[in-house]
Write a protein that binds this DNA or RNA. Sequence first.
DNA 1: CCAACCCCCTGAACGC
DNA 2: TGCGTTCAGGGGGTTG
Length: 278
Amino acid sequence: MPELPEVQMVCDAIWPRIVGKRIEEVEISHKEVLANCDLDDFRLRVKCSAFCDIKRRGKYIIFHLDSDAFIVVHLRMTGRLLAVPKDYPEEKHTHAVFKLQGRDALRFIDQRKFGKIWVYDCEKTLNESLSLLGPEPIASEITEEFLFNRLHRTSRAIKTCLMDQQLIAGIGNIYSDEILHSVKIAPWKPANQLTVQEYADLAQAIPQIMAYYVKMNRMSAEEYLQTAGKEYRNTPYFRVYGRAGQACLGCGAVLRKMLINGRSSVYCPSCQMLDENE
DNA sequence: CCAACCCCCTGAACGC
DNA sequence: TGCGTTCAGGGGGTTG
């Protein structure tokens, strides 16, 4: 489920209950959740360390430990991280529990078991593992020149490009649709057919749209816990995602849904097709 | 290089 | 009410 705005909110929401606390015990009930080591190894590398920071890179959540090791979590489709009191009722599909000093525990819950947890010994191995990620969407690197240089030779659909984590890290199916609707570009348009103006529009819209949804998704730790991490505040603000069959908020035409590279995509057949006869 | 598939897994929503 | 089908916001892998 979560893309950059949701992952950012999770980091912010669990931060106050996690940072500064020591890991007293680790319980892994579904060992496949560990992506790059086995259970004993994992325990050995993180136990007795304290969390000193939580950061986000793309859709990855990065826990910095005071041993200089890092725990990295990717929620994929249905993963959730909850910081809760140890005696808080345990939810189904809880695969990992970090019991912290004091009253709280960090739990990883994932119905579909797609989510993963990695551990890295130092900043060097962490950086190597993330080295293929493109720049953050809310960053000065996202310029017209950057997009042109990276895209003008590929015939892939622009939507597919925006979701490519090696181009830009953090955009998924929802926000690629939102971005393309805002700049009135058809999601299936081959990237190498975009005009100079369209590259410029995208460079402007990508940081702006992502920052907007980060802002709209902000919630307190208490609010996050109340919904058990299952609901997001920014959902009512989507202008195309989840609105197929409803009116385009720009022109009133009925929004349509189609598959692009196997991903459902919602678009406005009127305002996102103005350039069809180029 | 890239498109077009496949896979991982569970549950909700929908159609008959 | 039940049963089958389809779909889900991610990403990695294989094939041609």
